[in-house]
Amino acid sequence: MTALTAIWIVAVVLAAGALLWMSALIGLRLVHQRGAVRDLADRHAVQAALLGALQGDGDVGLALRPYEGDAHLMALSLLDFVTLLQGPDLETVVETLRKAGVEEVLRQGVVAGAGDARLACIEALGAFNSPKSLLVLWRAASDASPATRLAALRSLLQAGGGVSIAEVVSRLRMENLPPGGSTADLLRMVVEADPDGAVAALEDSDPLPPSAQAMLLEGLGAAGAYAALPTMVSSLSAEDPKVRAAAAVALGMLRHPAAEDSLRKAMDDPASIVRSAAAEAIGAAGLEGLAGTLEDHLRDSAWSVRFEAAAALAKLDPPQVGASDEMADPQRTATG
């Protein structure tokens, strides 16, 4: 067989294979189509049963029985309620599902599941706090996928699984967690539970990566940890501008008058992201004594600083707002 013959024979075989593959998929679709309709009906049935539990319906166990073994369905149904409810109502839903054996089903979903179904089981398991569930979640926290590790740590935190600040910090040092918004969100939750631990981590002789420092500082600010004020102030002198900006933002969130001097100095920082963060912080903290400093920065070289200074002045004393209005003239700014 020549090369030319091989080319067309291979092409025809491959094209025929693709057509067969697609035909098989069309056949499978007929089956899936019915499955999709059934899935939707099952979801509604579980939701109805759980709503019944909230209204004191005694036959919930019976209503849930046909669906108990479907980990993904039960996880999604529980997560719908976790989003909407809290307190005793949520406890009623969780207890109903526990009695129906759903906790064990979710654990199986974490151990043997895959993809988004597994992730949903991990998230739903955060509503339960039995030692077996915590153990499964701790194992998931060592998974190869960063998204799975992050979800498992969040669930552990929700279930009271003892996720310490030291644990998260050590993972950040090892780059075991992605330095993104979801990690920052987890860190905020951990810092809220243990602000002293966060301060200790920031003051550790072995410094954390700058992104981790910034996340910890913002977490401390969000937690309103006044004891962390000296640490925030000293972080305003950090080498990395992102850390300095995060410290300024955190000081703004604390709304403590003791931050005034530090934020005044931060307004002269060489990095514009620090100056704009400081301006925003002054507005957030309502530090009227710094209105003059903000006015000085209405002619800052960086647009973001001018913008934040004007916005901060608008939040302070009303007479100062005139200055920001003047700067807010778009044509004037546009033409320089």
């Binding site: 013959t5 080319i7 491959l14 094209a15 057509l19």
Partner: peptide, 15 residues
């Protein structure tokens, strides 16, 4: 061979 390259592989990729 030319027809295979022009049409059969095209069908393969699209499908």
């Amino acid at each position: 061979a030319f027809l295979a390259i022009s049409f059969a592989y095209g069908v393969l990729i699209s499908v």
